[in-house]
Design a protein around this nucleic acid. Structure first.
Length: 883
RNA sequence: AGGCACGUAGCUCAGGGGGAGAGCACUACCCUGACACGGUAGGGGUCAAGAGUUCAAAUCUCUUCGUGCCUACCA
């Protein structure tokens, strides 16, 4: 009679691709034309075009998809804006590696041709990660896909750059910057990774020019001494009192340099004397500025010593370090060498040791922008979840330094500045200038630097919606609703979007930010290729199915804690998917098309009323959890409900009606069962889109996709308090019998007779109504209800509420075992009663605790005392028999 | 050096002032007509240690010890 027979186990492979294509073809991911108020929008953190889906993406995008699907099912006009980031350095590196394999390099190829090659590369491979997002089930509006190097977005970049320049918030100047000698570009401070390195602290002697005495300095980088233009001491330092102003002889090069005083110098570190190399250390650069020291570049852009390095010219910086140490030792200028742990800056892209260099770069003056961005979070215009990230955000915003935005690479937005070759005028303009505004010359050369990739990312929330045009998308979806991302790019990206959004749109880019944790391996270690502990999301999806994977991520995504992902967890949720599948199997086997029910003929059993009430409550809880980004709560609530309430109790009970003779009851139960199951599928859909759609489409009465069916709502009319209480009693009695069976080791084939000593008529009525359920679910034979009945001799007893459940075990009951069992229960209850009684004996408690709490404890104590009394009586019963 | 988290069952973690929870693992009995990727029952915790606040602390405060992470120009 089944509508359709489905297999015993769910096979994800067969369904995922099919439904994804169905959704996309039918335009179900598309945002509607802007209709003003009720909209929900997320802009995707654009993955690098070079990227492949890793576990972090999987978590990030699963959470976003859950929110998007949930909101869409609530009927809200939903946009999930997808796209990719051109990822300047990363992408350039990839293509350069290709060239290297072919035995050439970008300089040989030339700038224009190289950029063509990158575009080619991106056309070929740039969509890879987006297809992997499809695999994950992401319901992005792909018709609006954007790329940070698109025409439109590039226009936004130029507009922003020029405007900031005109406002005096962008300037160009010679500063010390972080230089990556391998990537050949400047990096922002943020792009430098500090890593603890085992190094050395070298104590070196600088002799006085007078020939008498010396000053010992401590340094970790002896090779930079070639560029020293002073040695500094603290003016308060007794050791060097009166020496400032004297001249020292720079070792090796024999150049005279002054001994100066500056209170920046820490008297407690090293020898209290600090060598100053303005060209190769950011602090020294600052000191050099205040003391107007000469700047001598001794290391070039390749990390090679310059001609200023004299005899060391042409050496690699690290080779030079070794050589110079040798020479110093020869000259007896090395006092001692200590091993020393210190942080060394590395390029975040290629891990090469950063070289601080002085060069001409473009900077954004961020202080005024940061001020506004900080304020917006203080005002609550943007809320950050979990809120402890707000203080981290404020901290960074208040200590922020100017942002170096120029990069000496080729792949990226070329800075819209032109230099007049005739008069050296700098022209910053939206369009390529035809002639110099100053001298009318026409020999204009564009700046060769490109912008930091994060510059265009900072505009993402409005550039993707069409800015600088005034588009319908902007009015509909800006500010966007929520940004979902990991804390690792809070500064790189979130903070900068805040600054740019506020400055150019006059409003925050998003109303809320949800910061999720990092995914780690089972041992809590960060996953990395070098450690070999990476979990590949694609492989997981292959093995366990996308739904199981997504559900696992959601279930583990508790706020503020890293996720330790282990395979066992995924297996557990794979089993859950299969459980749902088999619930569907049972339901389909018991349906014959759509149930035919007349509203006036519809009957509801206790189980029906109960499950409908629970569904309503669970819908409410799930929605509340999702609204608060408590993904784990939402997932857990649904899991518990579907498995342990719907499957374990409801489906077991509904079988009675399904297999019964009563036709009206059968059709009614079919209808309730189907309705409830459909609602449960809808609750689960945001978490597990594929299996829910697959089942949904097989159920009768579903003509459109589950992804656009309304998300279940809580309803007061569906809350039946009496059904909850009655069901609790029924479950209690059945569990009581099962408990005895289990502990007495009575096999499921053996039926037992039961005598229930009921404490009230009302309860008796409930049990009488559901007698068949007790018999089936507890495998009971005769069940007798009586009030005040005498305990049968060979019976084991459980107590639920004030009801005594005597399970008759003639010939099966080991009296000693039963005594032990009862004693154990008594001990447990005694402990509980003790706690309650102690509380009630405490005068402070009675006086100061809220009355309802006192009442509760009093009620509890009473109920437990009665229960204890009954258990003790049963125990005494056996004592008597023994005598 | 500062900052932020976190120490709860064997493991992985929820919870967050009024009687300790889940999943996995474990034990026992079951292939009962949706599901052995399953069912029923069971064992297991001084909620890191110490002090304080409170009628009441796993939960709030402080200290200590451990573990992660982030930021930082100490050469």
């Amino acid at each position: 009679m089944g509508t359709e027979i489905i297999g015993k186990a769910y096979e994800p492979r067969d369904t995922e691709d099919k439904w994804y294509q169905y959704w996309e073809k039918n335009g179900l991911f598309k945002a509607r034309e802007g209709d003003g108020n009720d909209s929900f929008c997320i802009v995707i953190p654009p993955p690098n075009v070079t990227g492949t889906l890793h576990i972090g993406h999987a978590l990030d995008n699963t959470l976003q998809d859950i929110l998007i699907r949930y909101k869409r099912m609530q009927g809200i006009n939903t946009l999930w804006q997808p796209g990719t980031d051109h990822a300047g350095i990363a992408t350039q590196n990839v293509v350069e590696r290709d060239l290297a394999d072919k035995g050439t390099n970008r300089h040989a190829v030339g700038r224009e041709k190289f950029i063509d090659l990158v575009w080619e590369w991106r056309k070929k491979y740039g969509g890879l990660i987006l297809n992997q997002l499809r695999r994950l089930g992401c319901s992005c509006d792909w018709s609006r896909e954007r790329f940070t190097m698109d025409e439109g977005l590039s226009r936004a970049v130029r507009e922003v750059f020029v405007t900031l320049y005109e406002e005096g918030l962008i300037y160009r100047g010679d500063y010390i910057i972080n230089w990556c000698p391998r990537c050949h570009t400047a990096l922002a401070d943020l792009e430098v990774e500090h890593r603890e390195v085992e190094g050395h602290l070298y104590h070196l002697r600088y002799l006085f020019e007078s020939g008498k005495g010396h000053v010992t300095i401590a340094t970790t980088r002896p090779e930079t001494l070639l560029g020293d233009t002073a040695v500094a001491v603290n003016p308060e330092d007794e050791r060097y009192k009166g020496l400032a102003g004297r001249r020292l002889i720079l070792p090796v090069l024999h150049r005279p340099i002054p001994l100066i005083s500056d209170d920046y110098v820490d008297t407690t570190f090293g020898t209290g004397a600090l060598k100053i190399t303005p060209a190769h250390d950011p602090n020294d650069f600052e000191i050099g500025k205040t003391h107007e020291l000469e700047i001598i570049n001794v290391i070039d852009e390749n990390g090679i010593m310059t001609e200023q390095a004299g005899p060391y010219q042409g050496m690699d910086r690290f080779e030079c370090r070794r050589k110079i140490l040798d020479d110093l030792q020869q000259a007896d200028l090395v006092e001692k060498i200590e091993t020393y742990q210190h942080a060394v800056g590395h390029c975040y892209r290629c891990k090469t040791v950063i070289e601080p260099l002085i060069s001409k770069q473009w900077f954004v003056k961020v202080a005024p922008l940061a001020e506004k961005a900080s304020q917006a979070v203080k005002d609550g215009r943007t809320k950050i979840f979990p809120s402890n990230w707000e203080s981290v955000y404020f901290d960074w915003m208040s200590n922020i330094k100017d942002w170096c935005v120029s990069r000496q690479i080729w792949w990226g937005h070329r800075i819209p500045a032109w230099y007049c070759q005739d008069c050296q005028e700098v022209i910053v303009a939206r369009e390529t200038p035809q002639s110099c505004g100053s001298c009318s010359g026409t020999r204009m050369v564009q700046e060769t630097d490109v912008l930091d990739t994060w510059f265009s990312s900072a505009l993402w929330p409005f550039s993707t919606l069409g800015w600088p045009e005034e588009t319908k998308e902007l009015t509909t979806f800006y500010p966007t609703s929520v940004l979902v991302t990991g804390f690792d790019i809070l500064f790189f990206w979130v903070a900068r979007m805040m600054m740019m959004g506020l400055h150019f749109m006059g409003d925050v880019p998003f109303k809320e930010v949800y910061i999720h944790a990092l995914v780690r391996d089972g041992e809590g270690k960060k996953m990395s290729k070098s450690k070999g502990n990476v979990i590949d999301p694609l492989e997981i999806m292959d093995r366990f199915g996308t739904d199981a994977f997504r559900f696992t991520l959601a279930a583990l995504a508790a706020q503020g804690r890293d996720i330790k992902l282990s395979e066992e967890r995924i297996v557990g949720y794979r089993n859950f998917v299969n459980k749902i599948w088999n619930a569907a199997r049972l339901i389909l086997m018991n349906l014959d098309g759509e149930p035919e029910t007349d509203d006036d003929k519809r009957v509801y059993t206790l189980a029906d009323k109960w499950i409908v009430t629970r569904l309503s409550q669970v819908s409410e809880e799930a929605a509340q959890a999702l609204d608060a980004y408590q993904f784990n709560e939402a997932a857990g609530t649904c899991y518990q409900f579907v498995w342990h309430e719907f499957c374990d109790w409801y489906l077991e009970m509904v079988k009675l009606s399904l297999y019964g003779e009563d036709e009206i009851l059968r059709e009614s139960s079919r209808a309730t069962m189907l309705e409830t199951f459909k609602a449960a599928l809808k609750l689960l859909h945001p978490f597990m889109p594929f299996v829910t759609e697959e089942i949904w489409q097989k159920l009768p009465g579903t003509d459109q996709s589950i992804m656009i069916s309304p998300f279940p709502k809580a309803s007061d009319t569906q809350t039946d308090e009496a059904a909850l209480a009655d069901m609790e009693l029924l479950i209690g009695i059945i569990t009581g019998i099962r408990n005895i069976r289990g502990e007495m080791n009575i096999g499921p084939g053996k039926k037992v007779d039961v005598l229930v000593d009921v404490s009230s008529e009302k309860e008796a009525a409930v049990l009488l109504d559901n007698m068949d359920h007790i018999k089936t679910l507890a495998k009971a034979g005769e069940v007798t209800l009586a009030s005040g009945a005498e305990k049968p001799k060979a019976s084991a007893t459980a107590v639920f509420g004030q009801n005594q459940i005597h399970v008759l075990l003639k010939g099966l009951l080991d009296f000693e075992e039963e005594k032990k069992r009862l004693s154990k229960k008594i001990k447990k209850i005694e402990k509980e009663v003790g706690i309650s009684r102690n509380k009630l004996a405490n005068k402070g408690f009675l006086k100061k605790a809220p009355p309802e709490v006192v009442e509760e404890v009093r009620g509890k104590a009473e109920a437990l005392s009665l229960k204890l009394e009954k258990l003790e009586k049963n125990l005494q019963f056996f004592e008597v028999i023994n005598d």
